[in-house]
Design a protein around this nucleic acid. Structure first.
Lengths: 217, 217
DNA sequence: TCTGTTACCGTACGCTGTACCTTATGGATA
DNA sequence: TATCCATAAGGTACAGCGTACGGTAACAGA
């Protein structure tokens, strides 16, 4: 069974899913594949390129979102698949925006997104499109990064308020009780735990409304 | 001259500014401070906490944005200072959103932001506030991350189109010439290089308009 | 059969974070 | 003052990392 970029990517993704990017190493991937560590360098220049390869492999799944008749449907489909990918592969969120995404599948996703946005009302020329694309990408990258970070924090402490206060409490509760952060305290204490998915949708809609210049019916 | 968390943070920031996060190590910081590596662990649990310390030190500068009478002015001031910090300390952008920002100065910035947003028209209750804050943070984190990434790429290849095509060209130009990415190609070839600062401003305004539900005069 | 080239393989280097052992120091007690 | 202990400063050493590079085997052409 000979090696290939695809096999290497698959093994690396498996390991990263299980143990995170920190738990990933050339040596472990090689062991998973039953070869010596240096074999990987016959297919990949260095670890950076290996990460790019993993990222583009995930983009291949996102690219299946395809194009819909209505521009908004296309944008929403891509955003949702990207979010699903980030939740499936948390390391993907760590890598989002960390380096230029120029793999073939990432470009395909970029193309679909740009083509869809260019149909949006309020996007009149190339400058508008460039900006709209930038705003959308920024939101997606930031939102997923933050969501994954919070999810990891919640997982390591327990999400319910008491458990949470016990773990961060000695520090954070004391902080909030100083009264220096009233609004934050209000949000933490009284805030309902809105579903992350709904928040993502809502804010995405808000952003698209901002781009088109008027609320979506 | 004895050690302190502040001195350690300052030395670490100096090194990270000069050589990036990858060029940072406990040993180098210690050498910079003229002590043995293990001395740092008397002030910090591990490297993660050291990074948190660096991040909160930068937040201290952002917190100086202060609060303005008009909510929009406050939000803009914070966003601009955050952007300035990310451009001054590119590693800060790498860390943005990577872990919960719970340091005292980060909380102060969060408090100012939340308090300002709670004044925005269209933000009616705690749920609205939570969402608006999430959208704003997501945008800032993502926009800065992407901007810094692009800036690094530009720095390592040269920003003008010919030089850029020479370096990425063998790969990217071929990609774009396949005709599979017409909109992306259009953006790359005909797109004016909009100033990153103006784009940031524009998109921030777009987002805030989306939050308030109507364009800002 | 011999030779030049290419592909495969693994050892070894310099670096990392940090656990933990060793030594020095300051303060309290007899 | 002499003794003892608690505490802190200091540094060595370990396990693991990415990957440069030298050695070996296999194979195509003469």
């Amino acid at each position: 069974m000979s090696l290939s970029r695809a096999k290497i990517a698959a093994a690396a993704i498996r390991l990263a899913d299980a143990h995170g990017l920190d738990g990933l190493s050339v040596r472990k991937i090689a062991k998973e594949l039953g070869v010596g560590p240096m074999r990987l360098y016959d297919y990949v220049i260095n670890v950076s390129e290996l990460l790019d390869l993993m990222v583009d492999t995930v983009y291949a799944q996102i690219a299946e979102a395809g194009q819909h008749a209505e521009w908004r449907a296309t944008v929403l489909a891509i955003a949702h698949r990207t979010r699903a990918a980030a939740l499936d592969h948390e390391w993907f969120a760590d890598l989002l925006g960390a380096r230029p995404h120029l793999g073939p599948h990432a470009l395909a996703v970029g193309e679909s997104t740009a083509a869809a946005l260019s149909q949006a009302p309020g996007v009149r020329g190339i400058d508008d499109l460039q900006r709209a694309l930038g705003a959308l990408n920024a939101f997606i990258v930031g939102a997923l990064r933050i969501e994954v970070t919070e999810r990891r924090a919640a997982r390591s402490t327990g999400t319910d308020v008491p458990a949470w206060q016990v773990s961060l409490g000695p520090y954070l509760t004391r902080m909030l009780e100083t009264g220096r952060y009233p609004t934050v305290a209000w949000l933490v204490v009284d805030g309902a735990h809105l579903g992350a998915g709904e928040t993502f949708n809502h804010n995405l809609t808000t952003l698209l409304d901002g781009i088109t210049g008027h609320p979506h019916p």
